[in-house]
């Protein structure tokens, strides 16, 4: 299996705190990889490294054969043209119509004629079920529609790799299931490599081909869904069975923490 992304020994810090602790992983080409883990496990930080928004303290991030870890911004911009990202809040520009939001990357990065771009915008909006909404402003859309509009913009440049940051967050179960179906269609029809950062188990079991689970900045699992289900790792079992985490420190530790010692 060919890999679209390979991460080797990735370490990163926020100040003195080590957030990612030497992670290595592979993202297979043309499949859906889910990056899983509880809040604060480092999955969003990992995503920011994969799209080049953060630079690691140490390690390599190889996308289509090129290491982006030490890459300058100019080269990184070329890599980003092949990447689409749907951010958690959709990140639409509120002062622009939905159509202009989708057209923006095409106007910025290509020499396509306005007439071609307009057709492409209508194609992308139709793909995400938003035909006829090109003149709407983001404030006039529901949460699910904003996500779809954000996805249309992420697809504008026909990316080879598409990242989703918590695509179901804040959506009702039916709308969330609709986003999952859309993700599956994108994989099947366009053979895009898809990376989904999530902690939604229903979504995970519906869409993922390959799973990477993080816990406290470390990779605790990488493999297929069946292997994840069969794992006897207590951290994985806790997560899959939705068990609350036990406090790991003593009353004396707790006193030291709140006393600021």
């Amino acid at each position: 299996m060919e890999n679209a992304i390979e991460v080797r020994n990735l370490r990163t810090h926020y100040g003195n705190i080590e957030i990612l602790k030497g992670i290595s992983l592979n993202v297979p080409k043309g499949l859906i990889t889910a990056i899983l883990g509880g809040s604060g496990c480092g999955k969003s930080t990992l995503l920011k490294h994969l799209i080049g928004l953060l630079k690691p303290t140490e390690g390599n991030i190889i996308i289509n054969g090129r290491d982006i870890a030490g890459m300058n911004e100019r080269d990184m911009d070329e890599v980003r043209k092949k990447i689409g990202v749907l951010f958690q809040g959709a990140a639409l520009l509120n002062s622009m119509t939905v159509g202009d939001n989708v057209a923006l990357p095409l106007r910025e990065h290509t020499r396509l004629e306005g007439s071609t771009i307009q057709i492409m915008v209508r194609m992308k909006l139709d793909l995400v079920g938003l035909s006829g909404f090109d003149k709407f402003y983001p404030s006039q859309l529901s949460g699910g529609m904003k996500k779809r509009a954000g996805l249309a913009r992420a697809l504008a440049m026909d990316p080879e790799i598409l990242f989703f940051d918590e695509p179901s967050a804040g959506l009702d179960p039916i709308t969330a299931a609709g986003i999952d179906e859309l993700i599956l269609r994108l994989k099947d029809i366009f053979r895009i490599t898809i990376i989904v950062v999530t902690h939604e188990l229903a979504s995970l079991f519906r869409i993922a081909d390959h799973v990477i689970m993080l816990d406290r900045g470390e990779k605790v699992f990488e493999g297929e869904l069946d292997e994840l289900r069969a794992s006897d790792n207590p951290r994985i079992r806790c997560f899959l069975e939705r068990q609350a985490e036990e406090r790991e420190y003593t009353p004396e530790d707790y006193f030291r923490i709140i006393a600021g010692d």
Binding site: T110, L112, S115, T116, I117, I119, M120, M123, K124, D158
Partner: peptide, 11 residues
């Protein structure tokens, strides 16, 4: 062929 090519033929 990507969507820009399809859009070109549509036009």
């Amino acid at each position: 062929i990507d969507s820009s090519g399809i859009a070109t033929f549509v036009e």
